[in-house]
């Protein structure tokens, strides 16, 4: 057998569960193994590996409780850097890589593409939201031009009038944030239960709090501007222009 061309996956597939295989360790050592089953994670890197138990490995390699690599699974994704810092503070000076750095290459590029897509869609939705809020408040103020003029005439302060429209815009904004969060929650749930298969593994969306906070605050700011601009534009007109113009 040509060990250099050895592909454990093809080998195990050909063998099937229960068959006997010879797995090469460190080129010179051999062990005889029973194929226990096939691992399918639809993840390229994993599916083409053969797995053996820790006990088996230690007996073959003659080592005990040693590892060349430790994988740490975090309960929340997106906190990699914080943990790296924490580990460093605990005095661990070994080389530490986040999953993005470790995987690198094509997956890193794909992850980057996803991030870029997220940024673009966020930006586009924010622009759409801004325009919609601007248009709604603009139409409202134009329709109420005469009323705004009369309110100013009877002594209602211009700022109070502008504030009432900003308040209206904020109402739309908060409703938008609420429904947006609901939608995100629903979609994340669906895609977590039914991840999208990709060659390098299954992909499901992850929403982090900083992302949500950033989007919500941006929407809030945009609504403030969207409420202020048109109402200010209408409210600053002279009273007579508003009433009769």
């Amino acid at each position: 057998m040509n060990w250099e061309k050895f592909n454990p996956l093809m080998f195990l597939m050909a063998l099937g569960a229960g068959g006997i295989s010879v797995i090469p360790f460190a080129i010179f050592q051999y062990t005889t193994e029973h194929g226990k089953g096939l691992v399918t994670l639809s993840q390229m890197g994993t599916d083409s590996l053969a797995f053996i138990s820790e006990k088996e490995m230690e007996s073959v390699l003659g080592i005990d409780n040693k590892a060349s690599l430790i994988l740490v699974k975090l309960s929340t994704i997106g906190t990699e850097d914080k943990f790296r810092k924490d580990f460093a503070e605990l005095g661990i000076s070994e080389d530490m890589k986040t999953w993005q750095e470790k995987i690198g290459g094509i997956i890193g590029t794909i992850a980057g593409t996803f991030n870029l897509l997220t940024m673009i869609t966020t930006l586009v939705s924010l622009i759409i939201a801004a325009v919609i809020i601007l248009v709604i408040i603009y139409i409202n103020t134009v329709n109420k031009r005469k009323q705004i003029g009369i309110l100013k005439a009877i002594g209602i302060d211009q700022e109070v009038i502008i504030f009432s429209y900003i308040f209206q815009a904020l109402f739309y904004c908060i409703a938008g944030i609420f429904f947006g969060l609901l939608l995100i929650w629903g979609l994340t749930n669906i895609f977590t239960q039914n991840p999208i298969p990709f060659p390098m593994g299954e992909v499901s969306p992850i929403i982090t709090f900083p992302l949500l906070a950033k989007s919500s605050i941006s929407l809030l700011l945009i609504s403030l501007i969207g409420g202020f601009l048109p109402s200010w534009q209408t409210a600053r007109q002279s009273i007579l222009d508003s009433i009769w113009g």
Binding site: K146, Q147, I150, K152, I154, G155, I156, I243
Partner: peptide, 21 residues
């Protein structure tokens, strides 16, 4: 601003259009 306050405090208006909210 003072005029706005003056209108609020001391003047009342009724227009041809009733213009109530």
């Amino acid at each position: 601003k003072e005029k706005t306050l003056f209108r609020l405090n001391k003047l009342g208006y009724v227009f041809q259009e009733y213009a109530i909210l």
